[in-house]
Nucleic acid binder design. Sequence first.
DNA 1: CTCTGAAATGAGTGATTACTCACTCCGATT
DNA 2: AATCGGAGTGAGTAATCACTCATTTCAGAG
Lengths: 215, 215
Amino acid sequence: MTEEELMLQQLFDEDKLTDKQKKIIVAAIETFSEKGYAASSTSEIAKKAGVAEGTIFRHYKTKKELLVSIVAPLMTKFIAPLVVKDFNKVLDREFETVEDFLKATIENRRDLLIRMLPVVKIMFQEIPFQPELREQFFELVVENIFDRVEKVIVGYQEKGQLIDMPPKSIARLTITNILGFLISRYVLFPHLDWDDELEIERTIQFIMHGVGKKN
Amino acid sequence: MTEEELMLQQLFDEDKLTDKQKKIIVAAIETFSEKGYAASSTSEIAKKAGVAEGTIFRHYKTKKELLVSIVAPLMTKFIAPLVVKDFNKVLDREFETVEDFLKATIENRRDLLIRMLPVVKIMFQEIPFQPELREQFFELVVENIFDRVEKVIVGYQEKGQLIDMPPKSIARLTITNILGFLISRYVLFPHLDWDDELEIERTIQFIMHGVGKKN
DNA sequence: CTCTGAAATGAGTGATTACTCACTCCGATT
DNA sequence: AATCGGAGTGAGTAATCACTCATTTCAGAG
């Protein structure tokens, strides 16, 4: 079983999928990620999947339904657990400092995040144009995850490790920097020389201490 | 003539454009920004511009040339001056602190950036898929602007106002946060309540001092 | 006014699009 | 063996796509 199929298992294993269905999903992810949703034709996806074009429409009523069926599980089954799981550890005081928590979270999940990147890329590419996705993203990420993130932040604030800024702003700024690193690293400038460990360290340092020199 | 009108003129008025040409550009920006490049049809753009479809292809050989002719000037004539202009002030010691410089830059240009946002949105949407744009973006922004940004950063480092992190990383992190704010504010969650002044203040505070509490 | 060349037109092109449907295939059930 | 239902097929559909081109419109020069 290839690495990619493993990733798909985590995402789509719940329902029993036939071989052809899996191949369609793999081909769709690859095509959408490379060319964008609108520029990808169902005939090309079918060809890449080694499947008749009609087979796609047996399982997905429309092309958009294929897109949603790929991106939606990412939001409900991947992002939420990704964040929430380690948050419980934080709430259990397994991490003394925010740095440790951030480092553990990013380091632990980095390989997984890299592997999910094609789908993540599709997600952020299409959110501005697909109201269905935007709504789902908003409900899950903003209202659901931000609530939990806020609690963690408040916890660290009470421990005196975080400044008194509103938790929503802290969450926005922190997530921005993690995503900003990933997008710079793997989407915009993947061909530059990157010392990943070091740059993650710097990103965490930046989140915690900024770039201003303390006096 | 205001600074902004000058900018827009520099963007699209350099060559004498007919009324219809201007209408095509405006309609194209609006359509590309709303639906994405691939999902926008030339017939729709023509209709929105009040122009025959053939008129588009009289001035732009292909649809892609229309895209490039919109985005390319933004990179060569807008982004560079936007950044560079105030940098000269910094180099002239007009701003004593990094905070003042960041605040002045963001505040001064915010309205302009908001108005340019449709084009900026198109730019970042299409960079992953258009090698031509990516190459141009890389050459201009990374090699050209980053070089200048580095000098400014080094200057502030020598004044003891910035930590000893490599200038490239500082630049990446700073730009990430400014763009992250704009994308959150105007692309992902424009419908949320935002106190812009306050959130810009927080973003600057974050860039300078992070979220860790000093002891 | 006429002449001229660029600007603009819109019907028309073949290719491609998302999607349909009558059909075959095949393993499980009775 | 007969039946059945879902999986898969691929030729076919109307619509739309980017793009072309012969023709018309129009503004300025003589």
